[in-house]
Simulated scan of single mutants.
Amino acid sequence: MSQKQLPKEFYPLMEQLQAVDFVLVELTLYLDTHPNDTNAIQQFNETAHYSHQLRQQVEQYYGPLQQYGNSYSGYPWNWNESPWPWQL
């Protein structure tokens, strides 16, 4: 299978998505020990919404990012198209 050439705009968008998702991981860990911090909960929810928007934007142009029903497939089935996450 040959690797699909991606436009240069893909990489900054993916980097932004990865950074936002890292913030979500950190906020999750913080909220596990500070469950009543309303500011952190608000920040988590806002960041989760932003992550969802970024993910939709990436998938609209470049294909699905997650399997098992977390991302939709285009037609034809496009889960077998590269690049794979480890190829980025």
Rank of each mutant, 00 (worst) to 15 (best):
Q3N: 07
Q3F: 07
K8M: 11
F10L: 08
L13P: 03
M14E: 06
E15P: 02
E15K: 09
Q16P: 06
A19D: 15
A19E: 15
L24D: 00
E26S: 06
L27H: 01
L27I: 02
L27Q: 01
T28V: 10
T28Y: 09
L29S: 15
L29N: 14
L29K: 13
L29C: 12
D32C: 08
D32G: 14
T33M: 14
H34F: 12
P35E: 00
N36C: 04
N39Y: 11
N39G: 14
A40L: 01
I41N: 09
Q43W: 05
T47M: 02
Y50H: 11
Y50N: 06
Y50A: 09
S51G: 06
H52G: 14
H52V: 10
H52F: 11
Q53S: 06
Q53P: 00
Q53K: 07
Q53W: 04
L54S: 01
L54M: 02
Q56A: 05
Q56T: 00
Q57V: 06
E59T: 00
E59A: 00
E59K: 00
Q60P: 04
Y62V: 04
Y62M: 03
G63N: 10
Q66S: 13
Q66R: 12
Q67G: 10
Y68H: 12
G69Q: 05
G69C: 04
N70K: 15
N70W: 14
N70F: 15
Y72W: 13
Y72V: 11
W77S: 11
N78T: 04
W79T: 07
N80A: 11
P83C: 04
P83A: 06
P83L: 08
P85C: 07
P85A: 08
W86P: 03
Q87M: 14
